[in-house]
Design a protein around this nucleic acid. Structure first.
Lengths: 245, 245
DNA sequence: CCGATGCTTCGACACGAATCGAAATGTGCA
DNA sequence: TGCACATTTCGATTCGTGTCGAAGCATCGG
């Protein structure tokens, strides 16, 4: 039927089914879940789920581990999660593109807190600045390594690097920003960094929402230390750039 | 049927058809092609192609430009190309996993030249080392920015940075390594860097194939300057780590 | 040994989508 | 105006596959 077997389409085919996609998405955090829970997550019966899981397994997207009478499924690797994320970043853009965002929505899109670290267009720009200056470097598994010059810089900014405890998921890591389709800084370092920016008067938290405001002092500092410009942060829809590793 | 409309699966669905995937792949280099050529590339008739193109357009994966009686289609953005690459990186792994590679295949997988820069497991490891040490930093559109410390280091290695001309596609950029599913160093800097490594006796080109060999002197230097170890380069299938930007 | 639970296999049904032929629209050229 | 070419629309056919009911296998607990 087709000149060459198309590997791209065969991979996409496995993700194209809503039930299969729901199962995969339920596994993106790296957990291993039993077939029954995946069936529930996908909203299908156990038979249907079993059929889908067999296909995902044969396609190399899942791995399985039998334990007693349970079979725990997990993603075959982080590359599967990556592909899912990039695929997810495809549709919302086109769907939301024409919808005129409310004032409140625009504020949230510009800068907000994600748990307790900085997100939104500002969060992405800050993370980009940190990386371009070599203060942090992406490593395996979404981790971020703080370079020696980064240690020095964060210290000068008022972050007590020695007091920062590396949590189970690392000191600093990248968190996918769903409105921007790019990464911002998360982890203990991200939390401390935003706390410092707030206490030094660069940022101001809103009481009623998750929105964040930047003070004039903050704009000056961000521009000077990270090259984050007030005019350039929102508009230029910079393209996604994956790292080497 | 499904609790939430699943954006991931709807995107994947568009790529899941072999004909549509073939069209998209024909466009990954950023060109704009008329509908007729895309029909030929996909191996279907013009009517079928038109139907597919309309779906891809409605899904936001393609953009179109009408010029005379031709309609030129191109990808809606680099994020589409990115998603395709990560999707393509999914399947070959599973397909090749069990196939015992020949001696010659193993050599090529270990290190080879891609045009005139270094590729294969060694190429990926070298690029990873360069990035971990902060010599290069990923930027938008697959570009790599050489940091000040990177300029100094490449200079000390014997690369004449002042003589390097930045081509139309930049001084240094990341090139997806299809056997490794990770990025290696390309662009004028990549070309010059491999030339230096060869002339300083670290690497040796094979005459009959694209394979590359590492000399004992090379292993010592790679270990010292980039932390690339002979034992660790092949085995540890490090996970993919996307950059912040 | 028996029933309960978790999961998979088998079989049948129905919906959706890809495909192509034929015809319509629209553009360029003489 | 008339013809050639590029592309789209319409309609009918065929095939693949997602779905679930029922039954078949494992494992755990008593």
């Amino acid at each position: 039927m087709h000149p060459l077997p198309n590997y791209v389409s065969s991979s996409a085919f496995l993700i194209a089914d809503p039930a299969r996609a729901a199962m995969l998405i339920a596994l993106v955090d790296g957990r291993a879940l039993p077939a029954g829970e995946l069936a529930y997550a996908a909203g299908v019966t156990a038979q249907t789920a079993s059929s889908h899981l067999a296909k995902l397994l044969a396609g190399g997207l899942l791995a399985v581990e039998t334990e007693g009478r349970h079979r725990y499924y997990r993603l075959a690797g982080s590359h599967v999660a990556l592909a899912l994320e990039h695929l997810a970043a495809l549709k919302p853009l086109a769907a939301v593109r024409r919808k005129p965002l409310s004032r409140e929505g625009l504020d949230l899109r510009f800068a907000r807190r994600c748990y307790d670290h900085l997100a939104g267009q500002l969060g992405v720009a800050v993370a980009q600045g940190l990386q371009e200056r070599g203060f942090v470097v992406p490593a395996a598994d979404k981790q971020l390594v703080v370079t020696p010059s980064g240690m020095q810089w964060f210290g000068a900014m008022g972050v007590d690097m020695t007091a920062l405890k590396s949590s189970r998921r690392g000191l600093a890591r990248q968190c996918l920003d769903w409105t921007e389709r790019r990464y911002h800084l998360a982890g203990p370092l991200g939390v401390q960094f935003m706390a410092v920016l707030c206490s030094s008067g660069w940022l101001r938290r809103s009481k009623s929402s998750r929105a964040i405001q930047v003070t004039p002092l903050g704009w000056a500092g961000l521009k000077k230390h990270l090259g984050v410009d007030e005019g350039s942060v929102g508009l230029p829809a910079c393209k996604l750039a994956p790292s080497i590793s």
